[in-house]
Design a binder for these strands. Structure first.
Lengths: 127, 127
DNA sequence: ATCGTTGCAAACTCTTTGCAGGATT
DNA sequence: AATCCTGCAAAGAGTTTGCAACGAT
């Protein structure tokens, strides 16, 4: 539900980890991070809180090929994602190559697009 | 297993639907299509046949954001995908905008990328 | 006091696996 | 005949839902 939410400890901490992360987080990452402070936190609570935050458009799902959804703050504008093949973390990328309409054949209508780049992140690249 | 496979009716029909489809198919689509001819076909058989075909590199998984894997013939070269938001089918696109390296920040190393375009396919666009 | 939220357990979906019978070589 | 494959059912992963107790308002 979008109205009448209560400001519980659990939901406060869940919002905090998203604000601090600066990159998309999946359900297990949120569960793990909040559990450092609230060890009893149940996974169903994380799912319910995230789904409510998506419904009220504070979070946006980041659907990535071949993996479970991550989520990020919804106020970020059009951008794309990088997946580190070493540490498996997801990062935001700035910019967009555009020209997507050229890829679409006659008769098809393009509405939007996702780009995912795979590689090695800055931190893992140092090893 | 990659060697010693047997040419069963089920596996023959599964290969046939991929050859005829001309676009990526998911497990349910394959199950549905082959069941028109072999009504007793079990879903586990479809999973096992597809996994074997992937292992021998006759098929390639098409991992798409927010949906179950589809699969396509592995001899298609670099290309991207279109998802119809109306009929939910997946189509192949020719070409690639390139310039992906420009999106990646200093310190990150890009290896490959996926592009998915969402919109309305030719057939659904006629309605 | 009300009623949204929590944790637990059960249910659901998608995929994989164990097994006994059946098909291909 | 050997052994791979099949269908079924059970088991796993990830996610959702029902419920009684709890906590925010």
């Amino acid at each position: 539900m979008v109205i009448g939410q209560r400001n519980t400890q659990q939901r406060r901490k869940i919002r905090e980890v998203f604000e601090k992360a600066g990159r998309p987080l999946n359900v297990d990452e949120v569960h793990g991070l909040v559990r450092e402070i609230l060890p009893g936190l149940g996974i169903a609570t994380v799912y319910r809180a995230i789904n409510d935050l998506v419904e009220e458009e504070w979070l946006k799902p980041v659907e990535l090929p071949g993996r479970n959804n991550s989520y990020e703050l919804s106020n970020l504008g059009h951008h794309h994602h990088f997946i580190c093949e070493d540490c498996d973390k997801v990062f935001d990328l700035q910019g967009c190559p555009g020209q997507m309409k050229d890829l679409v054949p006659e008769g098809f209508k393009a509405r939007t697009h996702d780009i995912t780049i795979y590689g090695i992140c800055e931190h893992c690249n140092q090893d």
